[in-house]
Design a binder for these strands. Structure first.
Length: 271
DNA sequence: CCGGCCACCTGCGGGC
DNA sequence: TGCCCGCAGGTGGCCG
């Protein structure tokens, strides 16, 4: 899926088309996503103005006066703004029709995504309330991670991918950030010094920030709102590079499954 | 509370 | 050509 940079890129791409526009209708062709798509969306949203399009973790929030449409892209989801007359393709599950003839179209082959209506404060909803801090804000720092890691024996890669600890660090960028900070992904979270957590946070923020600036990583079925690819893939130093030489030391990149997810690291640079 | 594992679903590439 | 296997960006839930 889209990791956080892809979600951020999507939000920024959709915002100018959607903010301030009135919804003309909602078409749901497939309700069976990760959770069933909320019922009565068209009746609920028709005639209502999209106040803002924002992001919290990997959720895209279309905020209305009386509630919020939460869209999660799962592993293979994609949102694009297209003319409403654009022919439907396979896996185009939901259209949010706008009053200017465009629609926000949700496609998701694997159907791990979700389209959910929440009334009231979305941050208090069961979808968002338990989530940890955003990775790109000030209160996420080395000291925070270090404190949270006390007594934790889980691999640091799983630790930083746990949304209750910090949101938005997905499988690609977890490996990349650990490489940048010289930390082996299998290391127990509770056995990493504060100074190294400072490095890790800096690495998480720089890798995510650079990926956002580059328009996201393009992998398999992801592409940008307007269709053109992201350009960060070439900047990946370890992800899916097993057997290739590390750019820093020349040793061969390893692949190891951690927490049932493929993980990549340089055995010489990361400890 | 924590950690490990499973599930959800479709598509694609490689091996035979 | 076709089948089968393993693999893929997420994350809630269950169990010990």
């Amino acid at each position: 899926m889209p990791e956080l940079p892809e979600v951020e890129t999507t939000v920024n791409g959709i915002r100018p088309f959607a903010e301030g526009r009135t919804v003309a209708g909602v078409i749901v062709r497939q309700r069976q996503l990760r959770w069933p798509v909320s019922r009565g969306l068209s009746q609920k949203l028709s005639g209502k103005v999209i106040q803002s399009v924002r992001r919290r973790a990997k959720y895209i929030m279309f905020e209305f006066e009386r509630g919020t449409l939460l869209i999660h892209l799962g592993m293979s989801g994609r949102l694009r703004v297209v003319p409403s007359t654009t022919p439907i393709e396979k896996h185009d599950h939901v259209d949010l029709l706008l009053d200017d003839g465009h629609c926000v179209r949700f496609r998701d082959p694997r159907r791990f995504g979700s389209v959910i209506w929440v009334s009231g404060d979305p941050l208090m909803s069961p979808y968002l309330y338990h989530l940890g801090p955003e990775p790109l804000v000030d209160d996420f720092d080395g000291h925070y991670l270090y404190t949270k890691a006390r007594g934790r024996r889980a691999a640091v890669k799983n630790f930083i991918m746990d949304g209750r600890i910090v949101v938005g660090v997905g499988n690609i960028y977890a490996s990349e950030a650990l490489f940048r900070s010289g930390i082996r992904p299998t290391r127990a979270a509770g056995r990493i010094a504060l100074e190294r957590y400072d490095l890790l946070v800096t690495a998480i923020q720089s890798v995510l920030g650079e990926a956002i600036a580059a328009g996201g990583t393009t992998l398999r079925d992801y592409s940008r709102v307007t269709g053109e690819p992201g350009y960060f893939e070439q900047a990946l130093k370890v992800y899916e590079r097993q057997g290739q030489p590390c750019e820093a030391c020349g040793d061969l990149i390893k692949r190891k499954v951690i927490g049932q997810r493929a993980s990549y690291y340089c055995p010489s640079c990361q400890h």
